[in-house]
Amino acid sequence: MTAVPLPYRVVGNRAETTDTRTVELLPVGDGALPAFRPGQFAMLYAFGVGEIPVSVAGLRDGVLTHTIRGVGAVSRALCAVRPGAHVGVRGPFGTGWDLATAAGRDLLVVAGGIGLAPLRPLVQAVVSMPHRHGRLNVLIGARTPEDLLYRDELEGWARPYCGVTVDRAGTDWRGQVGVVTTLLDQATFTPHDTTAFVCGPEVMIRATARELLHRGVPARHIRVSLERNMHCATGHCGHCQLGPLLLCRDGPVVGYDRAQPLLAVREL
C-alpha cells in the first residue's frame, strides 16, 4: 500500500551547507521499499509534522540518501532528525533519469543549487561504470561558494570536466562567477550525440535547455527534472499537474520535447 509510510531509521545526518543536510536512512525492520533509481523521489514523513517529496541523492550500499534544504516546517524537521530516530518513507515514485538509454553517448549533467542532489546518484553511477558512456561533463551552479554541495566529491566527477560557477562570491573565490550555462564552453561533448540531464530552478532549466538546443543537442535528449506540488505521489490528488502530465507519475524527469511547450505557457 503506497499511501502508508514505512519507518526508516536515520543512520547519518551531516551538514552540507548552513541550511542543507544529507540524511541517510535504512529500513527499521526486515521489509524495505523497492529499489529506487536515480531521478526518482520519495515522500519523507517527519513524525507529526508532515510529508514532503525529496529526490534520492544517493543509493550506495542500500542506504537511502536524501539531501534536504530546510526551507519549510517539514524540511526543517527532517534536517533536524538525529541518528536513531525514525522517518516515514514512501516510494519509489516517478520517472528516473533513465541512464540506460544514454549508453555510448556523451553525458552533460547541469545542476542549479539543490538541483545537484537528484543528479548525484546519476553521476555516481556513471563514474562507477566508466566505459559505458562517452565523456562526462558536470556543470554546477550555486548561489555562493558556501552553498556548494558535495565539495569533497567533485574532483572525482571530472571525466573529463566538472566545473562550478556561483552567482556571487567574496574576494577569496578564485572560481567562475555567472550563470551555469557559461560553463558550457569549457565542456567537451558532441552535441547531437549527447544526452543532457538538467535539474534546478525552472528558470535555470529553461535557459539551459535553450542554450543546449542552440548548440544542437536534440530536445528529446535533454532530460529535465520538474517540480510541482507532489502531495500523494500516487497520481490520485491532482496537485502536480503540468498540462497533460501528472508529474508524480509522468515525471519528475521529462524529455524537453514534452516539457518545452508546457513550460512556455504562463501559470499552466
Binding site: 509510510p5 519507518p7 525514525h86
Partner: peptide, 17 residues
C-alpha cells in the same frame, strides 16, 4: 483517515494503515 502512527518511548514509530 489514511493511517495513524504512534511513537514509543524509544523514538520508534509504528504506522497502522
Amino acid at each position: 483517515r489514511q493511517w495513524s502512527a504512534d511513537r514509543g518511548p524509544d523514538g520508534g514509530v509504528t504506522v497502522r494503515a
